[in-house]
Amino acid sequence: MTDMPRPIPNMDDLDTAGFFKAAAEHKLTIRTCTQCGASYSLPREYCRECGAFAMEWKEVSGKATLHAYTVVTHPVHPAFPVPYTAVLVDLVDVPGARMVGNIPGEHHLEVGQAMEVWFEHVEDGIVLPQWKVAE
């Protein structure tokens, strides 16, 4: 277990890599249809709402509210020492869009409380939009 490297996102996937490339520039983006404005937390090229293949990476604000959280206490990976608090957030700008993140340590939070993005440098070229309690 001690030799396991931290999992990093695939940076070559044709549908999803753009999210992490934007994150490397400290931009939080969401795949959005240029024809009808529908957005997809899990990026893909086809818009099921309007039938277009016309997506763009739309930059959104880093404001969110807490949807749920869990304090992970059972260790399964050395890159994630316990305890840490995994959070699920709803983006304020984009109704229905949701993302996950983690906060080191044990924290007891309130559903609905304000959260904000920050950018974690994992290694060269790998940056994750992460979430913390809004200041």
Partner: peptide
């Protein structure tokens, strides 16, 4: 879409 979860510590 594992890249949106596992790198953030959601593993199990």
């Amino acid at each position: 879409y594992d890249e949106f979860f596992n790198p953030f510590g959601l593993l199990t």
